[in-house]
Write a protein that binds this DNA or RNA. Structure first.
Lengths: 380, 380
DNA sequence: GCGCATTACTAATACGCATTAACACGAGGG
DNA sequence: CCCTCGTGTTAATGCGTATTAGTAATGCGC
């Protein structure tokens, strides 16, 4: 009668609150007349496969009970119990849905969503800029992602330190966009090298012998890659890259003038390609200059854009070039992440771009010969 | 010494796996020479506030220990213990990120994300089409949303039955877009009535005495609301609504012709407003007819559009009217949902639209007095 | 000095699920 | 008839944290 240690149990109040709590495995178990453990066994084996010694009948009873109660496993508990919860995180340090749609990750998310759905994952969007919740945007912010099985990071503003920490802890992380500086960080990116190379190859196939790349004065990997692809494309086609094949300018609008273009054309250049950047300054300058110079675009001069056309194209001919398959990039990132979560060691970092024929490239005209370029055209 | 029941402890293997375990509160506690509970207390009170009786010294020791070990709380455990997971679901029966950006929920999501972040919630995106997770796309799909603390539904294709079920179970649900048919379902919508009223008020203030609403033959609440607001606006301004103030047509393009518009203007009508629909047929017909009739828009006739301008405006003057504040709608939905989750009973269904001055409305010209069409043109 | 309030902290849960040793029950095998 | 297997199910645990009852220690008033 002395109840040795019955100290009016501490811990939590019997019922958290008035909240009509969602059903737990325990409730499902009660309804099905089995134990909670059985429910867990049945539900985790759901896929069918090697039923771990649960009779068909029991299994069915449990499934029925679960459905009728609308049971859904608690992701947190699931995760805590060292399992997985079929949740993939998506984290961007800037807003994922910025007001300025132009800079959004939307196209990526299209692919991310589709692929995640296909692979059976749901997406948790961690709101990175959140100053809300508990505390500042300190380590807390990034540590929340651990609720998911793995996390996809968008943008280049992800704090290095936190990322490193996650990677070091063995948390599955994939960065969307090239990011080689961080050892062990998985990432996916577009293959600008091959794509640029392909563009050059197409121009070469159209008969162009002198092609000039207009790029900005910038050492981002995206720029470097394009240049590398461009040069490789040239050498593939047996066009030794003359030093003036690359026009690197800090002020495209000022440097790529109609005169200059005309001069280059007179010198034998028959095609130009511009790198793609945020502003697409190179492309704008180039296409503007060509128009101003009174050159017929697909006719006398071919143009290429190493990337997607600017959104404000509006009537202008679609440039030949390549499209960055953003949705596919997103999908690839998800696939990679899923593989990491599953413990596999897949590597699939680069996604191919799609060649876009466009309307700004055509065969070299025989009539378009120029002064010192006579030899170049002699084969016509 | 006989160890009554020491059954070689079941449960999990001593160490889950190779996972490099991050420090736990227990380790911090050991280092600081206190109990785990103390660590929890110190760390959860982080913000400062009313220190729950922990001495400055201990507090500091714990904080130091935590920092030196690089402790980060495990969100899964945190949420498990707190009996909520700070997750809000977002469910759309069509893909959340459709390829066709035009029809996307993007503008809403902008607000949803921002508000969720501000309130300290993360977002779980459920895809209706998703066959993923653990089950088919059947009733299972909708039941998955229960994994969040509450859920936001987008679009009008949400199956009634399932929604009803969720509501009946007391699961916090908010529908984005008016939805009154379902008892007990919380929703947020735009206040078309007030906005339409305001548009009319503006026109009245500019001196317009005869205003005509062009609407399609459709009984959607959105249409009805606009008409109601229009009529109220008229009566506010003391302009008794003549029966012919509303032009309801099943084929706007065919019915709203240049002739008809000219006739109406001749009859004294100085302003037209069109309702907004998917196709904006009414607006297109109206503005086309006015142009065709050779009427100067802000000068001889004022036009209004009860909604957002069509995306393909391209150079045409921005119509006067109102904008549906989609981001704010999203934000309001999140606020409402958060309130429901917290057990509050807030009601904030209608969000005000923003009046847009545009360029298609101007004061009535003194010369534009009615009578016959002759006068209307005489000032030319 | 004895109650009583206050302060500083700890012990003991509980959260919901996965996991696994252990048990119950028959079916053969010797 | 006992013992070994196999099969189906359960009891008991742990994951890492939050919470609360409880304890020890101190201070205060009379």
């Amino acid at each position: 009668m002395e109840q040795p240690r019955k100290r009016a149990r501490p811990g939590r109040a019997p019922t958290p609150a008035g909240r009509t709590s969602r059903p737990r495995q325990a409730e499902v178990a009660r309804l099905a007349g089995v134990s909670q453990a059985t429910v867990s066994l049945v539900l985790s084996n759901r896929g069918d496969g090697q039923a771990a010694s649960i009779s068909q009948e029991t299994r069915q009873r449990v499934l029925d009970a679960a459905r009728s109660l609308g049971y859904v496993p608690d992701p947190a508990a699931r995760r805590l119990a060292a399992a997985r919860n079929n949740l993939l995180g998506v984290f961007s340090f800037t807003a994922t849905f910025p007001t300025d749609v132009q800079h959004s990750y939307y196209p990526f998310l299209v692919g991310v969503e589709r692929e995640a759905a296909a692979l059976g994952y749901d997406l948790v969007l961690f709101t990175g800029s959140s100053s809300g919740g508990s505390g500042a945007a300190g380590p807390e912010a990034l540590s929340r992602v651990r609720l998911a099985d793995g996390c996809l990071f968008l943008g280049r503003h992800v704090p290095r330190a936190d990322l490193k920490r996650l990677v070091a802890d063995g948390f599955p992380v994939v960065h969307l966009g090239r990011r080689e500086e961080l050892e062990g960080l998985a990432w996916v990116g577009a293959d600008y090298v091959s794509a640029s190379r392909e563009v050059v190859a197409h121009l070469a196939a159209l008969g162009h012998r002198r092609i000039v790349l207009v790029r900005e004065d910038d050492d981002a990997p995206a720029s470097t890659d394009r240049q590398e692809g461009f040069l490789r494309g040239l050498s593939d086609a047996g066009l030794t890259g003359r030093p003036d094949a690359v026009l690197r300018c800090s002020d495209p609008a000022g440097e790529v003038t109609a005169e200059r273009v005309r001069a280059l054309v007179a010198d034998g250049v028959s095609a130009f390609v511009a790198e793609e950047t945020d502003t697409n300054a190179a492309w704008r300058a180039l296409s503007g200059a060509v128009r101003e110079a009174g050159l017929d675009c697909p006719g006398q001069v071919s143009l290429g854009l190493l990337g997607s056309p600017p959104p404000d194209l509006a009537g202008a001919p679609v440039p030949m070039g390549f499209d960055i398959p953003r949705p596919r990039l997103g999908a690839a990132a998800v696939r990679l992440l899923a593989a990491l979560v599953a413990g596999e060691e897949t590597r699939e970092p680069l996604v191919a771009c799609e060649f876009r024929a466009g309307e700004t490239a055509g065969p070299v005209r025989a009539a378009g010969r120029a002064g010192s370029a006579r030899q170049a055209h002699s084969e016509k």
